[in-house]
Lab assay of single mutants.
Amino acid sequence: TETYTFDSEDQAEEFAQRAQKKGYTVEKRKENGKFKVRVE
């Protein structure tokens, strides 16, 4: 499980979609103005 942090929602969304296409489970959340994407 890895967590990635992005400054913009667009970046987080793009990353999450790519990860989902590769078959990963993706969980997105906003925390302290940053966008976190957890991938497993």
Rank of each mutant, 00 (worst) to 15 (best):
T1I: 13
T1H: 12
T1R: 10
T1E: 10
T1V: 13
T1W: 15
T1N: 10
T1P: 12
T1C: 11
T1M: 11
T1F: 14
T1K: 08
E2K: 15
E2Y: 15
T3E: 15
T3N: 05
T3A: 05
T3H: 06
Y4N: 02
Y4C: 10
Y4P: 01
Y4T: 03
Y4G: 01
Y4S: 02
Y4F: 12
Y4L: 05
T5Y: 13
T5W: 15
F6V: 00
F6W: 02
F6L: 01
F6Y: 02
F6D: 00
F6H: 00
D7E: 10
D7G: 05
D7M: 06
D7S: 07
D7H: 06
D7Q: 05
D7P: 04
D7T: 08
D7R: 04
S8R: 10
S8F: 10
S8Q: 08
S8M: 07
S8N: 12
S8I: 05
S8E: 09
S8D: 13
E9S: 05
E9D: 08
E9Q: 06
E9I: 06
E9K: 05
E9N: 06
E9P: 05
D10N: 07
D10G: 08
D10Q: 12
D10Y: 09
D10W: 12
Q11V: 09
Q11Y: 06
Q11F: 05
Q11L: 12
Q11S: 08
Q11P: 03
Q11T: 08
Q11R: 08
A12K: 00
A12N: 00
A12Q: 05
A12D: 00
A12W: 04
A12F: 02
A12T: 01
A12I: 01
A12S: 04
E13W: 07
E13F: 06
E13Y: 06
E13V: 06
E13R: 06
E14Q: 10
E14T: 07
E14R: 10
F15G: 00
F15E: 02
F15N: 01
F15H: 02
A16D: 01
A16E: 04
A16H: 03
A16R: 04
A16Q: 04
A16T: 05
A16F: 10
A16K: 04
A16L: 09
Q17K: 12
R18G: 08
R18I: 12
A19Y: 13
A19V: 10
A19L: 14
A19M: 15
A19W: 14
A19R: 04
Q20H: 09
Q20R: 13
Q20L: 14
Q20F: 09
Q20I: 14
Q20K: 11
K21G: 09
K21M: 12
K21H: 09
K21I: 09
K21N: 12
K21D: 13
K21Y: 08
K22S: 11
K22L: 15
K22R: 12
K22W: 13
K22N: 13
K22Q: 14
K22G: 10
K22F: 13
K22D: 13
K22E: 14
K22H: 13
G23F: 02
G23R: 01
G23I: 00
G23D: 02
G23W: 03
Y24C: 09
Y24E: 03
Y24D: 03
Y24N: 04
Y24I: 05
Y24W: 09
Y24P: 01
T25G: 06
T25H: 13
T25F: 12
T25N: 11
T25E: 08
T25V: 12
T25Q: 11
V26Q: 01
V26E: 02
V26T: 10
V26W: 03
V26M: 02
V26L: 03
V26C: 06
V26Y: 04
V26F: 03
V26P: 02
E27M: 09
E27V: 13
E27N: 09
E27H: 13
E27Q: 10
E27P: 00
E27D: 10
K28W: 10
K28I: 15
K28R: 11
K28S: 09
K28E: 04
K28N: 05
R29A: 11
R29E: 10
R29W: 15
R29C: 12
R29D: 07
R29I: 15
K30Q: 13
K30F: 15
K30C: 09
K30N: 11
K30Y: 15
E31G: 03
E31I: 07
E31K: 04
E31M: 05
E31W: 05
N32Q: 08
N32S: 06
N32T: 03
N32G: 12
N32Y: 05
N32H: 08
G33K: 03
G33N: 06
G33H: 04
G33V: 02
G33C: 04
G33T: 04
K34Y: 10
K34F: 10
K34A: 07
K34M: 10
K34G: 05
K34N: 05
K34S: 06
F35H: 05
F35E: 00
F35P: 01
F35M: 03
F35A: 01
K36P: 02
K36T: 15
K36N: 09
V37M: 01
V37E: 01
V37S: 00
V37W: 00
V37K: 00
V37L: 03
V37C: 03
V37R: 00
V37D: 01
V37Y: 02
R38E: 09
R38M: 13
R38D: 11
R38L: 14
R38Y: 14
R38F: 14
R38P: 01
R38T: 14
V39H: 02
V39K: 01
V39M: 04
V39W: 03
V39G: 00
E40G: 11
E40V: 14
E40L: 14
E40F: 15
E40C: 09
E40Y: 15
E40T: 15
